Simulated assay, not measured.
Amino acid sequence: MLWKTLLLAAAAAFALPVAESVVLCYYESWAIYRMGEGKVTVDDLDPFACTHYLYAFAGLNNDHTIKVGDPWADLCNGGGHCGYKKFTDMKAQNNNLLTLLSVGGWSVGSPPFSLMTATPATRAAFITSAINLLRTHNFDGLDVSWLYPALNGGAPQDRDNFVHLLRELEEAMTSHGMMVTVSVAPTEEIASKAYDIPGISQYVHFVSVMTYNFHGPWDPYTHHHSALYPFIEDTGNNFYFNMNEAIRYWLMNGMPAQKMVLGMPMFGRCWSLNTVTDTGYYAPASAPPSPPGPWTLQWGFMSYAEICKAQKEYGWTIAKEAGCNEPYTYHLPSNRIWCSYEDRDSVAIKAKYAAGEGLAGLMVWSINDDDAHGFCSGRKFDLTLTLLDAFNAASQ
C-alpha cells in the first residue's frame, strides 16, 4: 500500500519507528484542571501504555492558522505547565513512541474548518503553520478531529474540501517525516454526509472510528453506548448503533482495514432511572441525566476511574444483559444512577475483535479517564494496558 511505503520511507529517513500494533491514546490537556485525585497531568502518563499519544486539542485562528489550545497548559512561557514539551519528551523513555498533536474537537466545531478548507490559500496557511508548530515542539504528526464536515454548521462542499486538505497535508507532512491521522464518526447517518471515504483513505495513515456515544442520556431509556454487537431487542436504527455495524459500514464503503483503528471509550454514559424496579436495557430514564462525577463534572458522564471507584467504595451493582459483552452498573439509593461502561473483560474482547477483523489496532478516548492512578485494580491505566496486551496476543 502507498501509505505504508511512504511511512516506512519517512521512518528510514527521519528515524521514526513504525509500530506493528497500534494503540492511539488521546490525552485531554484540560485533565490538569481536575480536582484532587482526579487530576491527570502529562507526568502521570505511561510512555509504554500506547504506541501513539495524541495531545488534544489545538484550535484554529481567524486567519486559518493553527492555534495553541491552552497556552498556560500547553506551553512553558510565563510559568506554564509545558504540556507539549513533557508530552513529546516521553519519547526519551520509549524510543518507539510517536506523539501527535490533535486539532479540532467538539468545542471547535465545524465552521472554522469549513472556512480553512475552502480555498488552496487558506489550506496552505493552515498547513504551513501546523508544520511549524509541530516541528517547534517535536511532534511526529497531526491528527485532524473535525466534527463533522458538512454538518454542525458546516458547508456542503466540506466533504470534498476535507479530502483536498488531507491530500495537501499528507504531501507536506511526509516531506518532514510526519504522519497524518483523522478521527471520524461511526454511523452511516453522519458518515454518508460528511466523508468521501475512498478519498480520505488515500491520504491518511490511520482513521480512528469513534465507536462510542451510540447511546446516552439524550435517549429516554438506558442502553450501552459502546456495544460490540446489537442487543437482541434492538430494532430500527438501534440495530446499527454498535461497533461491529460501524466497522462494517466503513469497510464496505472503501476504508482499508489496515488503516482503521477501533475507538474505545474510557468513560461511561449515565442516566437517572425513572424507577427502582426496571434496571436493564431500555429501562425508562426520562428524568434529567445522572449528576456529574466528582472529577469530570459532566452531567450524564463518568470516567472509568470515577465509576470503578464508586463501585469499590459504595457497592454499586454490576450486571450484563444476556448475550452482551459489556457491563453496566447502577446505584439505586443515589439518584438512581445507571451507567454503561467498559471493564477489563469487555476491552479484551474488543481488542481481539479488532485483531480478528484485520484492523490496525485501537484508539483510546481518553487515557486520562482510565484508572490513571491505580485506585481500582492497583495497576495504573489498567484498561489501556489490557487493550494493548490483548491486541498483541490476538495478532500473533
Rank of each mutant, 00 (worst) to 15 (best):
L2G: 14
L7M: 12
L7I: 13
A11V: 03
Y26V: 00
E28Q: 13
S29A: 06
A31Y: 00
R34C: 02
E37H: 13
V40A: 00
D44G: 04
D44I: 00
A49C: 12
A49K: 00
H52D: 00
L54K: 04
A56Y: 09
F57D: 00
A58M: 11
G59E: 04
D63Q: 13
I66R: 03
K67M: 12
G69R: 01
C76R: 05
C82E: 03
G83A: 01
Y84P: 00
T88E: 00
K91F: 06
N94A: 10
T99E: 02
S102T: 13
S102R: 05
V103T: 12
V103W: 05
W106I: 09
W106D: 08
G109Y: 06
S110N: 02
P111D: 08
P111H: 08
S114I: 07
T119A: 07
T119C: 04
R123H: 10
I127N: 03
S129H: 10
R135W: 02
T136A: 06
H137M: 04
W146T: 08
W146N: 10
P149S: 03
P149V: 01
A150L: 07
A150W: 10
A150G: 11
R159M: 06
N161R: 15
N161T: 11
F162N: 07
F162M: 05
L166C: 02
E171Q: 11
A172F: 02
A172N: 03
A172C: 03
M173E: 11
S175M: 09
S175Q: 15
M178F: 07
V180N: 07
V180H: 08
S183W: 03
V184Y: 01
T187I: 12
T187K: 14
E188M: 13
A191Q: 01
A191W: 01
P198H: 03
S201D: 15
F206C: 06
V207F: 01
Y212E: 09
Y212F: 15
P217A: 14
P220M: 04
H224Y: 06
H225S: 04
H225W: 11
P230Y: 10
P230L: 12
P230W: 11
T235Y: 15
N238Y: 06
N238Q: 10
Y240E: 15
F241V: 05
N242A: 04
N244L: 08
A246K: 02
I247Q: 03
I247L: 09
R248A: 14
V261P: 01
P265Y: 02
P265W: 04
F267L: 12
G268A: 12
N274P: 08
T275S: 12
Y281F: 14
P284R: 07
S286E: 02
P288N: 12
W295V: 06
W295S: 09
L297G: 09
W299S: 15
W299I: 07
A305Q: 08
I307N: 07
C308Y: 02
K309P: 01
A310R: 14
A310C: 08
K312M: 15
G315V: 13
E321F: 03
P327I: 06
T329D: 05
Y330R: 05
R336I: 03
I337N: 12
R344I: 15
G356M: 11
G358A: 05
G358D: 09
L359P: 01
G361A: 06
M363F: 02
M363C: 03
D369T: 07
D371L: 07
A372P: 06
C376K: 10
R379V: 10
K380H: 05
F381S: 02
T386F: 12
Q396Y: 13
